[in-house]
Write a protein that binds this DNA or RNA. Structure first.
Length: 827
RNA sequence: GCCCCGGUAUCCCAACGGCAGAGGAAGCGGUCUCAAACACCGUCCAGUGUGGGUUCGAGUCCCACCCGGGGCACCA
């Protein structure tokens, strides 16, 4: 390349690399993003889901941070004191597996990745407040995770129980539900089996109703997807407990959502693997039952999940009495009834429940229709259960009634009066299994003493730090790696001093992330998990940006923690996140990016090719934030082209900084005012950043046109417009915006500039185009004043030559006038 | 099966119930160039998934269905 060409290029285009290298150190020095709680300004808390430190940042992070930064930077320009913290969710399995592979300590992998990511975030020009940085694997952090666990335990919200858990026979470890995909181990693909283990649980089910109710006010500020996912997960249903007497045994209570179909109940089913079934079975049937249970237990999740498989079961040999018909009904055990939902037993109404009908047909049990649905056959004949509304038949007092709600109400009242049942509410939500037989997590601060039992580690001994294990020590052996650290495990009981053992489980990392947003408010505090005053000042977070993949787990757990802390009197709100933005995922060529498909797009490579600004702009401009982005449809080169166009404006401006805008080109000034005004509206209402960018592009085009074809580069409006473009762009493309800001004669940083002031008068157009329609078809356009009266507009429309011609002598039957935009003549 | 979100031009996406096009990409034509790239200028392209309904007027509201994405699912 010759010198000549090189210098030409320099005047036309900015050097992306050079601009990035130039401004990053300036921002580091000026540190404009440190939140000052004492500034006196109104506070805003911009929260983004903290990353897990696996490798470097990827496209998903790029999108989340770009979207998040628009909000944080916008609030800052609007004069708010913004807290925009960052940290790492730094405990977890991948670090442990890497440590086993490389014979190192998980901390090495973890903290090395954190440094890599932190460096990438800085380069990516995120406006994080680095002084609040935290890592959940730091003892100063997990000390308080342990402290919170002990407070939960004191309130009966953390407890141990024996329960079947997911077990990977290949990796010799317990798996979290989210690590089981379609019945297989997420990592090795082995079929997951069940194992009975003693595990720690959080009693989140106590909060099911509140978790549901408190979503109501979030209806407009949280995404529908998250709200419905949580509602589905909590799975509230209304029904009744009905008690059936069993000859010679304890009565059997079932949960049903259709107590009104009690007259159609012809048999009972108990979950085969529940203790209840074992206690009911008669001696005559015991052998058959035990064979069956064994068979059920041996079935893998994959077999269990197949919903179209035949309904198996075994008769327990006892009979229950139907409380309304007095009939004797056989009691069966089957695996289509779940042990841990409801009471683990059901009344089967085969006519009106497909599962019960399938079972009845498989085992020759009676089917009795008690709701006659018009136009539908008797289920006993058709094999199709009817669940719709109909008229009750053979149902005693309900006969002839055809209102399902009233039927349910009547039966529940009847049962309650007789003491044979009651209306009740049931949830699908289960308690949160929090213990993991893994090393790289928060040790559970409990000691097991032969004399005192379960004893909490005293608060003043926290943090209970992890022993130093590495490499081979961490290999899965079926028990927690901590169990092998005998020096660490063997302790004296904090209560009686006798020889005792530490609990060897660690906590699910979702515990760590259920309160980090509180810690950000006072990250260095050594005397408490958080400072209530600071939390009061900043929380709830004004926006929480993150992936929709956390719609249920993390967001539900964080909400649960917040409610418990509220009940403990530690926070004065019940919901941690006032608003949410859940970005879609970045895909490629219609498919999720994955190694096996070989369609991955590397963030670092894109940044190297197009620069940080262009990549961020592409991600923000791609469409509504919630939509998925197909990178194959995007044009980062086009984004860069636009940024170059915008930047070029800053070189064209010849008026001095501070030039009053008032004398500037009126049309451009109006465009500036409209754009700035609308941009604010677009950001604040519905996070419509893609449209905001489009409007900025429009303003760049208008400014270019004004310079080239109209007022010229010296016009004050050109400066006003270019400054507005720089400020708007600073939300998305900070490097080029800063560069433009300097070329316009301003001091850094543009992040400290103010949002452009809009002259309200400029928002009102001088004249508007009113459309005149005849029969809904546009026949004429009139230039009218924006405050034209309906009468004047009507008169003008009727007088218009084109309209008169269109009417062709006909008399308008009706004239609709919507001043100043439209007149519609109906003939 | 139940629930949520969406379907507008070749593509990505806009459009307070009021002229279907703001913006971008691709394409095509031109200016610049020895030529190309870049840049700049210009330009082609749909009646809004389907069928009904409400309305003076429907992409927008209502109903049904089709297609795509997501959540839950043998949860009684």
């Amino acid at each position: 390349m010759t010198e000549q060409q090189h210098s030409t290029e320099e005047t036309d285009r900015y050097d992306v690399e050079a601009v990035q290298a130039k401004w990053l150190p300036v921002w580091e020095r000026e540190a404009p993003f440190t939140a000052d709680e004492n500034s006196g300004k109104e506070k805003r808390y911009a929260l983004t889901m903290f990353p897990y430190p696996s490798g470097d940042l990827h496209m998903g992070h790029g999108e989340a941070f770009a979207l998040h930064d628009v909000i944080a930077r916008y609030w800052r320009l609007r004069g708010f004191e913004v807290m925009n913290p960052i940290g790492w969710d730094s405990f977890g399995l991948p670090a442990e597996n890497a440590a086993i592979r490389n014979d190192t300590h998980p901390a090495e992998y973890t903290y090395a990745n954190i440094e890599t990511q932190a460096e990438s975030m800085r380069h990516y020009a995120t406006s994080f407040d680095w002084t609040r940085r935290l890592h959940t694997s730091d003892p100063e952090y997990y000390r308080w995770t342990q402290w919170l666990f002990l407070r939960f335990r004191e309130r009966g919200l953390a407890y141990r129980k024996d329960a079947p858990v997911n077990w990977c026979p290949n990796d010799q470890t317990v798996l979290a539900n989210e690590q089981v995909v379609d019945g297989r181990c997420e990592r090795c693909g082995a079929e997951v089996t069940r194992r009975e283990l003693n595990q720690w649980y959080f009693k989140i089910t106590d909060y099911a109703q509140r978790l549901l109710d408190d979503m109501e006010p979030l209806e407009t500020t949280w995404g529908q997807r998250v709200l419905t996912a949580q509602r589905n997960w909590i799975g509230r249903s209304e029904g009744a407990h009905v008690t059936f007497s069993v000859d010679g045994r304890d009565p059997l209570t079932v949960y049903t959502t259709r107590p009104d179909t009690l007259w159609g109940a012809t048999f009972m089913v108990v979950a085969a693997d529940a203790p209840l079934a074992a206690s009911l079975v008669t001696d005559a049937q015991r052998e058959a039952y035990e064979t069956y249970v064994e068979q059920v237990r041996a079935a893998s999740d994959i077999e269990r999940l197949a919903s179209d498989r035949p309904k198996t079961g075994v008769d327990l040999g006892v009979t229950a009495t139907n409380p309304v018909t007095g009939e004797q009904m056989p009691v069966w055990a089957a695996d289509y009834v779940l042990a841990d939902y409801g009471t683990g037993a059901i009344m089967a109404v085969p006519a009106h429940d497909q599962r019960d009908l399938d079972f009845a047909r498989a085992h020759d049990l009676p089917v009795r229709m008690v709701v006659a649905v018009p136009g539908e056959e008797d289920p006993a004949v058709s094999g199709v259960a009817t669940t719709g509304d109909g008229t009750y038949v053979a149902s005693g007092p309900l006969d002839g009634l055809s209102d399902k709600a009233a039927g349910i109400r009547t039966v529940v009242e009847m049962l309650e009066k007789d003491g044979r049942g009651e209306g009740t509410v049931n949830f699908r939500l289960r308690d949160w299994l929090l213990s993991r037989q893994r090393y790289w997590g928060v040790p559970i601060p409990v000691v097991h003493c032969p004399d005192c039992g379960e004893v909490a580690v005293p608060d003043d001994q926290l943090p209970l730090e992890l022993p130093d294990l590495r490499g081979a020590d961490l290999k899965p052996k079926g028990v927690s790696p901590l169990a092998a650290a005998t020096d660490w495990v063997n302790v004296s009981c904090p209560q009686c001093g006798a020889a005792a053992k530490r609990d060897t489980d660690t906590m699910d990392t979702f515990v760590d992330s259920s309160w980090y947003f509180l810690r950000y408010c006072s990250p260095g505090l050594t005397t408490a998990a958080f400072d209530p005053e600071q939390v009061r000042a900043w929380m709830p977070a004004d926006v929480y940006v993150g992936g929709v993949e956390h719609a249920v787990l993390h967001l539900l757990y964080a909400r649960f923690f917040t409610k418990v802390l509220h009940d403990m009197g530690l926070v004065d709100f019940v919901e941690p996140f006032a608003a949410q933005l859940n970005q879609g995922v970045v895909i490629n060529e219609g498919k999720k990016m994955s190694k096996s498909l070989g369609n991955g797009v590397n963030l670092g490579e894109q940044l190297a090719e197009f620069g940080v600004d262009a990549v961020r702009l592409t991600l923000v401009f791609a469409g509504p934030p919630e939509d998925n982005i197909d990178w194959a449809d995007m044009s980062p080169a086009g984004s860069l082209k636009f940024l170059q166009r915008a930047w070029r404006l800053s070189g064209d401006v010849t008026s001095a900084p501070g030039t009053p805008y008032a004398e500037g080109d009126l049309e451009l000034r109006r465009a500036v005012a409209r754009t700035v005004h609308d941009a604010a509206d677009l950001i604040e209402h519905g996070h419509r950043f893609n449209v905001m960018v489009a409007r900025t592009m429009e303003l760049v085009n208008a400014t270019r046109k004004t310079i080239d074809a109209g007022a010229g580069p010296a016009d004050p409006a050109v400066r006003e417009a270019t400054e507005a473009v720089a400020v708007l762009l600073s939300l998305v493309a900070p490097y080029v915006a800063e560069e433009m800001w300097e070329r316009l004669g301003h001091e850094p940083c543009i992040a400290n500039a103010a949002w452009p002031v809009v002259d309200e008068a400029l928002l009102v157009a001088e004249s508007v185009t009113a459309v005149v329609q005849v029969q809904g078809k546009v026949k004429a356009r009139l230039e009218v004043s924006p405050d034209v009266t309906e009468e004047d507009l009507r008169a003008a429309a009727l007088a218009d030559a084109d309209v008169v011609r269109a009417l062709d002598g006909r008399e308008p039957r009706k004239v609709i006038v919507r001043a100043p935009k439209l007149v519609n003549l109906v003939v």
